[in-house]
Design a protein around this nucleic acid. Structure first.
Length: 136
DNA sequence: GCCAACGTTGGC
DNA sequence: GCCAACGTTGGC
C-alpha cells in the first residue's frame, strides 16, 4: 500500500466537507497540474492519504482512503485532467501543523517541506508513521 | 496583503 | 525550442 497527501484550502473544500460525504466519498477534482495528475494516476484503491489544510490552518487534519482509481475529471471537458475519488477515514486527535513538521528533522525531506505548492504529493512509509504518531 | 517560487503560455 | 511574460499558489 502506498501513502499520499492531499492539500486543500479549507475555504474551498474542508475536512468537514469531506467527512460529510461519508463512505460515498468525493472526486478529488479541480487539479490542473501535470505533476499532481501524474501522482494521482499512480494511486490504487485502498491507498491511504493525509488530508492537509493549507493557508489559514496549515496542518494535517485527517486520513482518507482512495476509493476509485484515476478517471476523467467530471468538472472539465478537457481530457488532459484526471482525478481519483477519496473518502474520509478518521480525523487526527491532534492536527499536525506545518510548524511541527518543519521542526522534525526526520521530515525535512517531505515534499510538503520541499515543494509546498504541489497539491497532491507522495508520502513515504516512514513519514506516514511519524505523522500518525504525532497526531495520535 | 505581499512576495517568492513555480508552472504554463505564447511569441519569436 | 527558447525564453519572457504572466498567472497561481501558499507561506509569512
Amino acid at each position: 500500500m502506498a501513502y499520499w497527501l492531499f492539500k486543500s484550502e479549507p475555504s474551498t473544500w474542508s475536512w468537514d466537507d469531506q467527512v460529510a460525504k461519508g463512505d460515498a466519498g468525493e472526486e478529488w477534482d479541480g487539479v490542473r497540474n501535470y505533476q499532481a495528475r501524474n501522482i494521482m494516476r499512480q494511486m490504487a484503491v485502498g491507498d491511504q492519504g493525509f488530508f492537509y489544510h493549507s493557508q489559514t490552518e496549515k496542518a494535517v487534519v485527517g486520513i482518507v482512503e482512495v476509493i476509485a482509481e484515476s478517471h476523467p475529471d467530471s468538472t472539465t471537458d478537457d481530457d488532459r485532467w484526471d482525478c481519483v475519488d477519496i473518502k474520509a477515514m478518521r480525523g487526527l486527535s491532534t492536527p499536525v501543523t506545518l510548524d511541527q513538521i518543519k521542526a522534525e528533522p526526520r521530515l525535512a525531506e517531505m515534499v510538503l517541506v520541499r515543494n509546498s505548492r504541489l497539491s497532491v504529493q507522495p508520502v513515504t512509509q516512514a513519514e506516514w508513521d511519524i505523522i500518525c504518531a504525532m497526531g495520535a
